[in-house]
């Protein structure tokens, strides 16, 4: 199970006369079970990229392959693909529409034409997977708090039992606690189900703690594609394009400059703490 983007270009006619190149020769491979952070600022092409993964957008040139099959081949079943590659949009709570939470989550599996029992079973499972409390199952989704609404929306995609879960800015607009809760939930979900996760974000700090690989997008191009430590090594280049490495990276480099023999590759607070303590203990 893998997704391959092979030399994908995507050009659209903007409001000006000059066409905009949203994706510029992008080639990436997403392997089974990976946890990927896709980083870039607004307009870097990251949202366009994820819409290629489930065939919502067709590349101007280049190919997208799911399990080795070209998804834009004439007789390829895009509907099935969309259940295999679940895409959760930004502010997903804006797409809730049913009278209660449970029916809303049923929408996805129902569209797959599954029997009623299976649909309900999946909806139940999905809501449980996102840690949604059972007593609110039959409440109107519009009366929930922001964080809960978002869980329902994520469950709505999970209920289709995707093999890959793509989340576009799942923490936008949440407060710090709400953000941590959602990210922890995604982490737990991954550990439980071994699902492949692509997390789109503009915050390095948010993803550094969780993902195993970071893809940095800038002006439609893949700028870096590596493990977090290697990507953050380029913190000066990242800054030049308006992205920042986690503050920890800056702290470690500042200490190094002042003559502390710390390893600058620490990316989380726990790692940084260990490094500094190690230096002070020796």
């Amino acid at each position: 199970m893998s997704i391959i983007l092979n030399h994908v270009n995507y050009i659209y006619d903007g409001d000006t006369e000059i066409p905009v190149k949203a994706l510029d020769d992008v080639s990436i491979k997403i392997e089974d079970g990976e946890f990927i952070g896709l980083i870039g600022h607004t307009g870097s092409g990251k949202s366009t990229l994820v819409q290629h993964l489930n065939g919502l957008v067709k590349p101007t040139s280049g190919g997208v392959y799911y399990n080795g099959e070209d998804i834009h081949d004439g007789d390829y079943d895009l509907k099935t693909l969309r259940s295999k590659v679940g895409l959760v949009f930004q502010y997903p709570e804006h797409q809730l529409f049913e009278v209660d939470v449970f029916s809303d989550v049923c929408f996805g599996p129902k569209n797959l034409g599954l029997p009623k029992r299976e649909v309900e079973l999946r909806a139940f499972d999905a809501l449980r997977q996102v840690g949604f409390p059972e007593e609110f199952f039959y409440q109107s989704p519009f009366e929930l708090s922001g964080g809960q609404k978002r869980r329902v929306a994520i469950a709505g995609v999970l209920a289709m039992k995707p093999e890959v879960l793509v989340l576009d800015e799942p923490t936008a607009g949440l407060d710090p606690k709400g953000r941590d809760e959602i990210l922890e939930q995604i982490k737990r979900l991954r550990e439980e189900t071994k699902i492949t996760v692509v997390l789109v974000s503009h915050s390095m700090e948010d993803v550094a703690k969780y993902v195993g690989r970071i893809i940095v997008m800038n002006r439609g191009k893949v700028m870096f594609d590596d493990v977090p430590k290697e990507v953050f090594r380029h913190y000066k280049e990242l800054e030049a394009v308006g992205l920042a490495a986690p503050q920890v990276t800056y702290i470690m480099h500042a200490l190094r400059e002042k003559g502390f023999p710390v390893n600058t590759q620490a990316t989380t607070i726990a790692e940084a703490k260990e490094e500094i303590l190690r230096v002070f203990r020796t």
Partner: peptide, 8 residues
Amino acid sequence: LRLDVPQV
């Protein structure tokens, strides 16, 4: 209080 502080 459900808030966090800067990493530093």
